[in-house]
Write a protein that binds this DNA or RNA. Structure first.
Length: 423
RNA sequence: GGAGAAAUGGCAGAGUGGUCGAAUGCGGCAGUCUUGAAAACUGUUGAGGGUCACACCUCCGGGGGUUCGAAUCCCUCUUUCUCCGCCA
């Protein structure tokens, strides 16, 4: 959620920034400013009425104490009108606040200066590339064939017990999943992130806090009986741990990592490129989350990108980094880098990590603030990234590391899974 | 699932209708003393809205009500604790 005070002061800059998302926000921002003015006007009218009635109440109290009941009763009559007024003004104020809030909920974050123009993923800007794309043997196969061949993932079985997009991992496949989770968590904790295990269901307030609600309402599984949502990413519970907090600047940065399954309805995304592990309703992910001082968030984002790089290099996977263009940028993000691994067998890049700086956009919803040494208060900056999402890393390993003899496990993972080959 | 008790500032904890945004203690910050630190002493110390700055308004778990006036009374929801039941 953008900050009203900022919009009020720098409307033109906001309009210009939002153009990168191909949104003309002029009218919308005017509405915001108007709603805010209405809100403040109602507020100050109400304040005035309340101030008067407070004054009368005090006088009545004193009169009763002094035994001047008659005078007091006279005053009482005066307050009746004020009460009516304040009720009306209160309603007006609530309405204005609600209007303002709902408007703000519809406006996405403003993109960073470096975010390229563009509409689709075609317009994302490649900023880095590393690793050799392997030359595979003639009989190389995509991962869904390999999964069947080595009997490590059973998609049909998942369909039987739940539905499409809920695979069953088996034998070395299951072990490799567990190995990847441990490996990622170890890498993250070694880099200073504190490990957490968090709930996999969250309440509505948490959904609003990180911005999944109301924007992505239909993309989350909603347990209506208890009004809880299955998390689409660990970002939601982890970031919401700090909802409403006031953090001493000296305690920053706060860095967290956690493994969770992620649940996504993926409504409307069927069609091309969803075979095998490419798009699932349930998948595993290890996430990193940082809460930073505004002065440090840009450097922190770079640090997170470097961290993810080291993991991919250890896994010996060919990858590239994209700076997302305005049209592809998530609703809450200010600047996002996507990591993609190249799959030779599928002849395409697979997104395996997304690292973002949200600046104050989430913090404003979360009411997550920093207090510095001088007592100055400000909204924190939040950042997060996948380190990493499992299914496509697994797909990348299966497809890139296949040999005629079997899948050769990257060295870094061998101590975690206890075998060198899947054959 | 049933019965009871509770929810107050960073923490602990008073306050049961009228200068209560809230005693007191701890903690935090600043100062005095000290070569420095500790101790002691003095001062200061919740949040949001609003204003150029004041004024002023709101907030004692959330929501609603009674009243001229609510932290205090009533209703409701949530959470925590204790006991009973059930159970991985």
């Amino acid at each position: 959620m953008l900050e009203v005070a900022q919009i009020r002061e720098h409307k033109d800059a906001f309009v210009k920034a939002l153009q990168k998302r191909n949104i003309d926000a002029t009218a919308l921002l005017d509405q915001v400013i108007a709603a805010d003015e209405t809100r403040r006007a109602s507020q100050s009218q109400l304040d005035q009425v309340l101030a008067d009635s407070n004054k009368f109440s005090k006088e009545i109290g004193i009169l009763f104490k002094n035994g001047e009941a008659q005078k007091a009763n006279l005053l009482k009559e005066k307050t009746a009108g004020l009460k009516e007024q304040s009720k009306g003004l209160q309603e007006q104020l609530n309405e204005a606040s609600e209007t303002l809030k709902n408007l703000l909920f519809t406006i996405p974050n403003i993109p960073h200066d470096s975010v390229p123009e563009g509409n689709t993923d075609e317009d994302n800007e490649e900023v880095f590339r590393k690793g050799d794309i392997p030359v595979l043997h003639d009989a190389a196969q995509p991962h869904w064939e390999l999964a069947k061949k080595y009997d490590i993932i059973d998609f049909e079985l998942g369909t039987k017990i739940t539905g499409a997009g809920f695979p069953v991992y088996k034998g070395k496949g299951a072990r490799l999943q567990r190995a990847l989770i441990s490996y990622f968590l170890d890498k993250n904790t070694a880099a200073g992130y504190t490990e957490y295990q968090v709930p996999h269901l969250v309440n509505e307030a948490s959904g609003y806090g990180t911005g999944q609600l109301p924007d992505k309402e239909g993309q989350m599984y909603h347990v209506t009986e208890d009004d809880l949502y299955l998390i689409p990413t660990a970002e939601v519970p982890v970031t919401n741990m700090f909802r409403g907090d006031m953090i001493a600047a000296s305690d920053l940065p706060i860095t967290c990592t956690g493994y969770t399954p992620c649940f996504r309805r993926e409504a409307g995304s069927y069609g091309a490129h969803v075979r095998g592990l490419n798009r699932l309703h349930q998948f595993d992910k290890v996430e990193i989350v940082r809460i930073e001082h505004p002065d440090n968030s840009a450097a922190a984002l770079d640090g997170m990108v470097d961290h993810v790089k080291t993991i991919l290099e250890e896994l010996e996977l060919p990858y590239r980094i994209l700076r997302l263009c305005g049209g592809d940028l998530g609703f809450t993000a200010h600047l996002t880098y996507d990591f993609e691994v190249f799959s030779t067998a599928q002849d395409r890049w697979l997104e395996i990590s997304s690292v973002s700086n949200f600046q104050t956009f989430q913090a404003n919803r979360l009411k997550l603030r920093i207090k510095d040494k001088d007592g100055k208060k400000m909204l924190a900056h939040t950042l997060n990234g996948s380190a990493l999402a499992l299914p496509r890393v697994l797909a990348g390993i299966l497809e890139n590391c296949q040999t005629p003899e079997g899948i050769k496990i990257p060295k870094a993972l061998v101590p975690y899974c206890g075998f060198e080959m899947i054959d």
